[in-house]
């Protein structure tokens, strides 16, 4: 079948050009000075030194990680019970609920994020309801709360679907066995269900943390200028100021941090199960 193996060759060329080369270009830009010709490359570590010696950039980095971690934790807190309840339902009802959770994901994220603006704004729905009951107006738009809410709204379906997938794959007889052997429901949950659903939680974390830490339109639409995240920083250096070298360095730092945290998550997961 040597004939068919040739079918993949054009694709190998394709990914080398369109996937590998761009990644290498980011590294190249990040490690060179600006205004270089192709022949007179000047390598430098200045872009990285600039990032780590400026308090502003460090704060943006910490802020992004903080928001991403909070978002991920909230998604687990909301998503786990939801997935658990759905897995306890009969198959037909469960399937309908999963469909209902999947549907909004098909709608453009920007469109869904945009829908929150009218709800959260100072004279928006929530404040109108609060005002009706005599409460004071709460400022929600352009706050950290709005940014996290927007992220949870967009990303929690990923968490629910992942956890639900691992819960529904679980062998139900294990739970029965545990009950028969005299474990109470809490014990069964902690010793059987929770550990078996961990792979789902881990892939859910990946699917939430990754877009949350690099997101730039959610903080922009709902946070205004109040929450500057690392994605916004990258956008600014590429679109507004045009300093591609520094922008590349920031993206590289972000990519490395993300890879490292993914590695840690997997490690913790494995350690926990051993």
């Amino acid at each position: 079948m040597k004939l068919f193996s040739r079918l993949v060759h054009p694709y190998v060329v394709w990914i080398s050009i369109f996937v590998l080369a761009p990644m290498l270009l980011i590294v190249l830009y990040a490690t060179t000075t600006s205004g270089n010709g192709t022949l007179t490359l000047q390598f430098t570590a200045d872009n990285f030194i600039r990032f780590f010696s400026d308090e502003l950039f460090i704060n943006v980095l910490i802020n992004s990680l903080e928001i991403a971690v909070i978002t991920t934790l909230i998604c687990i807190a909301i998503g786990y019970p939801a997935a658990y309840f759905i897995s306890k339902m009969n198959a037909k009802q469960g399937a309908i609920l999963i469909l209902l959770i999947t549907l909004p994901m098909l709608i453009n994220m920007l469109v869904r994020t945009n829908a929150w603006i009218g709800i959260l704004s100072d004279n928006g729905v929530i404040n109108n309801v609060l005002g009706f009951f005599g409460f004071e107006e709460v400022k929600m738009m352009y706050t950290r709360f709005a940014v996290i809410l927007g992220m949870v709204y967009n990303f929690v379906p990923f968490m629910i679907l992942q956890i639900h997938a691992s819960l529904s794959k679980m062998d139900k007889s294990l739970v029965e066995a545990s009950n028969d052997l005299g474990a109470n429901r809490m014990q069964t949950f902690l010793k059987i269900t929770l550990p078996l659903s961990m792979p789902g939680v881990i892939s859910g974390i990946t699917l939430v943390f990754l877009p949350a830490v690099s997101s730039f339109f959610i903080p922009k639409l709902l946070g205004g200028g109040s929450e500057l995240l690392i994605g916004n920083l990258i956008e600014t250096y590429f679109i507004t100021t045009g300093d591609w070298n520094f922008g590349s360095a920031i993206s590289l730092i972000m990519a490395i941090i993300i890879m490292f945290s993914m590695y840690l998550t997997k490690k913790v997961d494995k350690g926990g199960r051993d």
């Binding site: 270009l25 980011i26 990754l210 690099s214 994605g231 990258i234 590429f238 591609w244 993206s251 993300i258």
Partner: peptide, 8 residues
């Protein structure tokens, strides 16, 4: 992250 693919 998408943004990395994008700038690449």
């Amino acid at each position: 992250p998408e943004i990395v693919t994008a700038i690449g």
